[in-house]
Every structure is written in structure tokens, then in C-alpha cells.
């Protein structure tokens, strides 16, 4: 089985789907001839033709509206928004249109679109190339939000998203495109080839939306994470010495509540880790769900480790980023409660 990094795995997913289904087409800013600023669409135009993979104007609202119209026609468009920070001009189209079309039309129309977008920080991208807007989309009824953490999942989840008949926001943690970054920015980045999750079949397979993965089994606490933070969590758990169970949510809508609840009932402690700022973040929803369903099993308050409630600052990237040391400290703290 070939080894792939995240970029190759995502590219393979698009290639497989474009080969299988003539209704799948790919468009966005710089995705055509050039192959995308992160190279995810590299070679697709050359292989599948200009009409199947093409550049768009710098117009996120226009890109998503076009995708919705195409989806309503019967195609399965995959639109790229170059950075998740730039998705907001399309917010109305996503929230008021893509998410509601099936409901408001009584099932007459729907938008089976996939919106791919690199997201998250750790690349010195400053305020406008680092944000994690997943909670904003998770809050919107009618959208699915998917976040892979390794090449195998990235390909399987992207294929599942394209085949899904509902609109999917597919957020790609750009810090782990080339390797499983664990938050230790001062150390050399491991490559995917030497890491788990990089054996990726060449052909078609799916990783279903709404099924979390138990990345590490443990008895003393549960850590909920997704995207880059799965790798940060692995390091943080090891450094803490706490026997924590690590769950990679893989998609936050749909959310695998059963796996979460089973784990927290077993461990009695729960820490939620995400890069997005804490207040109103998705961790708040996770915390409520765990509290509602696991209250009598909890041995300590649920903890949240997240980005600070500031914009993502350029010079203070590593002060902002919720790295393994902060998770380790939180784990030790809940063990003392």
C-alpha cells in the first residue's frame, strides 16, 4: 500500500471521485492549472480536463453560490476556499442557502456540495491564515463539519463527504499537511511516511462521517480532539504520565456521541482540546453534552484547553497555540481534583 502525506491523500480522493463520477468537479481560486496553493488539486486539470477542475474569480460568495446552483442541478461540486479565514464572504450562502435548501423546499432541492478549506494555525499565518471557524459551522443546522487528522482518514472522509447528499464543510488542518505536528515547534517535523495513518489505498474507500476513532486507550481520563490537536494530544498525554484515552472526533457534525459517552463513563474525567479560541468554541458544546450524559460518572470538572480569546497573533503564535504542555498540565490538574 502506498505511503501518502495529507496532500497526496486528498488529491487521491479527488482524483478517484472525478474518475468514478462525471458529476464531480472541482473549482476554486488557483486550483486549476496551478493545482492550488497547497497543491491539493495538483494535476487534476491536466488529467481530467479544464471543465472538471478550473480556477474561479476571487469571490468566495460566488464560488459557494455557484456550487449550490450546480448541486441543485444534480452535480456534486467540490469547491475550495483557499483559507478558512476567507470563507466568511460565503457565509450567507452556506448558512442561509446550502444548509436550508432541503428543509425550506420540503425536500424538492438540496445542495450536495463539499467545501474544502485549509484551516488552523501553526504556520505563522497571522490573524488571516490561522483561524479555526469550525464551531461557527457546527452551530448551523443543516451543515456537516468534517476535520481529518491523518492521510488515511483525510482520503476516506473526503470521499464520504463528496458522496454525501448534504452540504459538508471539510476543514483541512494545514499544519499537518506534511507531517503529524505535535505542537513541539522547536523540534524537527516527523514525516507522514514514518507515522501511522499514512498507508493509503490508491482506490476508492470511505471513512464514514460521524464515527470517531479511539486513537489511544486509557483508564484515567478522556481527551477529545480533532485535526492537528490529535497529535498535540498524543504528546501531551505521554508527557503528563496520565493514562488518558484519546478520541479523534473526525467529524463534529455528525458527532459520534456514543463513543464519547462510553469513554467518559469509563474514565470519569474529560478534557477537550481545540485550537479555536475557547469562549463559545465547540468545546463548550462537547462539555455540555458530556455533563448532561456523564454527570454521575465524573470525578472532576470537565476541562477545556483551547486557543486564547484573542485574535490569532503573529509574533505570539506559540504563546497562543494550545500545545502539549498546556494539555499535560490540565490532565495533571484533573487528576488532582
Amino acid at each position: 500500500m502506498p505511503k501518502m502525506d495529507m496532500i497526496q491523500a486528498l488529491n487521491s480522493a479527488l482524483d478517484v471521485m472525478m474518475s468514478r463520477d462525471p458529476d464531480v468537479l472541482v473549482f476554486g481560486e488557483d486550483v486549476g492549472y496551478f493545482g492550488g496553493v497547497f497543491r491539493v488539486t495538483d494535476g487534476l486539470q491536466r488529467k481530467h480536463g479544464l471543465k472538471r477542475c478550473f480556477d474561479t474569480p476571487i469571490s468566495e460568495g460566488g464560488i459557494i453560490a455557484t456550487a449550490i446552483g450546480m448541486g441543485a442541478y444534480g452535480l456534486r461540486p467540490v469547491a475550495e476556499i483557499q483559507f478558512a479565514d476567507y470563507i466568511l464572504p460565503a457565509f450567507d450562502q452556506l448558512v442561509s442557502e446550502a444548509a436550508r435548501l432541503r428543509y425550506r423546499s420540503g425536500g424538492e432541492f438540496w445542495a450536495p456540495i463539499t467545501v474544502r478549506s485549509p484551516y488552523g494555525g501553526g504556520i505563522f499565518g497571522g490573524q488571516t491564515h490561522s483561524q479555526s471557524p469550525e464551531a461557527i459551522f457546527a452551530h448551523v443546522t443543516g451543515l456537516k463539519t468534517v476535520i481529518p487528522s491523518n492521510p488515511y482518514d483525510a482520503k476516506g472522509l473526503l470521499i464520504a463527504s463528496i458522496e454525501d447528499d448534504d452540504p459538508v464543510i471539510f476543514l483541512e488542518p494545514k499544519r499537518i499537511y506534511n507531517g503529524p505536528f505535535d505542537g513541539h515547534h522547536d523540534r524537527a517535523l516527523k514525516t507522514w511516511a514514518e507515522s501511522p495513518g499514512s498507508d493509503v489505498p490508491e482506490g476508492h474507500y470511505t471513512v464514514p462521517l460521524g464515527k470517531a476513532a479511539v486513537v489511544r486507550e486509557g483508564r484515567e481520563a478522556t481527551v477529545l480532539a480533532y485535526g492537528t490537536m490529535v497529535h498535540v494530544a498524543k504528546s501531551g498525554i505521554e508527557e503528563s504520565g496520565v493514562d488518558a484515552e484519546l478520541i479523534d472526533l473526525r467529524s463534529i457534525v455528525p458527532l459520534d456521541i456514543d463513543t464519547i459517552v462510553a469513554s467518559v463513563r469509563k474514565t470519569g474525567r474529560c478534557i477537550i482540546l481545540h485550537e479555536a479560541s475557547r469562549f463559545g468554541g465547540f468545546g463548550g458544546e462537547l462539555s455540555s453534552l458530556v455533563q448532561e450524559r456523564c454527570f454521575y460518572h465524573l470525578k472532576s470538572p470537565i476541562g477545556r484547553v483551547a486557543g486564547w480569546d484573542t485574535p490569532y497573533p503573529h509574533a505570539f503564535e506559540w504563546d497562543y497555540f494550545p500545545g502539549p504542555a498546556r494539555l499535560a498540565a490540565a490532565l495533571k490538574r484533573v487528576m488532582e481534583d
Binding site: 455557484t66 446552483g69 441543485a72 420540503g106
Partner: peptide, 29 residues
């Protein structure tokens, strides 16, 4: 704010203008 697919009448929404650009996507499809 109606919808009638079989009559060529796309789903209406109270958000003004949002379907104007969707029509272009539909035509492109």
C-alpha cells in the same frame, strides 16, 4: 416563499439576492 421544482420554480428565500448567483451555477451545470 415557495418552491415548485416541477414547474421550474426554484426555492425562494427571504435572503435577497442569494439565488441570483446560484442561477449562474445552475446554468453552468
Amino acid at each position: 416563499l415557495f418552491s415548485a421544482r416541477d414547474y421550474g420554480f426554484y426555492s425562494l428565500s427571504g435572503n435577497l439576492g442569494t439565488r441570483f448567483s446560484q442561477a449562474v451555477g445552475w446554468a453552468m451545470a
